[in-house]
Amino acid sequence: MGKITFYEDRAFQGRSYECTTDCPNLQPYFSRCNSIRVESGCWMIYERPNYQGHQYFLRRGEYPDYQQWMGLSDSIRSCCLIPP
């Protein structure tokens, strides 16, 4: 099982949303994503809903700024857990 936490502000500040399963639409939970903490598993995150747009592969670790995962913007709208 994986676990990823999205934060609206840099350095793990602001409103957060924790996810443990695939989520095709993160828009209801936060308006922007400036930092991420991957506590377990590997995740693919996407800039648009329904697994569309630019995608980024994240391993376990801390990403205090969206540029840390080579993001082009602070828009993350869907995510899925990559099976081991």
Rank of each mutant, 00 (worst) to 15 (best):
R15F: 04
T21A: 09
M1E: 05
C19E: 07
E39W: 02
E8A: 11
I4T: 02
Q27W: 04
F30S: 05
Y46N: 14
C19L: 12
G2S: 07
L81P: 08
L26P: 02
R15L: 12
I4L: 06
I4W: 00
M1Y: 06
D74V: 01
E18H: 04
R10L: 12
K3P: 04
S16M: 09
Y17E: 11
P84R: 12
N50Q: 05
G2T: 07
G14A: 02
S31F: 02
L26S: 08
E8C: 08
C19F: 14
C23Y: 11
M70V: 15
G2L: 08
M1P: 03
S75C: 14
D9K: 14
L26D: 00
E8V: 05
F6G: 00
A11W: 12
A11Q: 15
I4D: 00
Q52F: 08
S16H: 15
Q13A: 08
R48W: 06
E62W: 15
C23K: 07
K3E: 05
Y17M: 14
G2V: 10
E18G: 07
D9R: 09
C23E: 13
A11K: 14
C80Y: 11
F12D: 01
G2M: 04
M44S: 15
R15I: 05
F6D: 00
S16A: 12
N50T: 11
V38A: 02
Q27Y: 04
A11V: 07
S31P: 02
S35P: 00
S75Q: 14
T20C: 13
L81W: 09
D22H: 03
C19S: 08
T21F: 14
T5M: 14
G53D: 11
R48E: 14
P24S: 07
T5W: 13
F6M: 06
R48T: 11
P24Q: 05
S16C: 05
S73P: 02
Q52A: 06
G2F: 03
N25Q: 06
G53T: 09
N25I: 13
F6V: 04
D65N: 15
G53Q: 11
M1D: 02
N25G: 10
Q27I: 07
A11S: 11
W43G: 10
Y51E: 15
Y17H: 10
P24W: 07
E8P: 01
R15P: 14
T21W: 04
G61R: 01
Q68H: 02
L26Y: 01
A11N: 12
L81T: 10
F6S: 00
S35Y: 01
E18M: 10
Y17D: 02
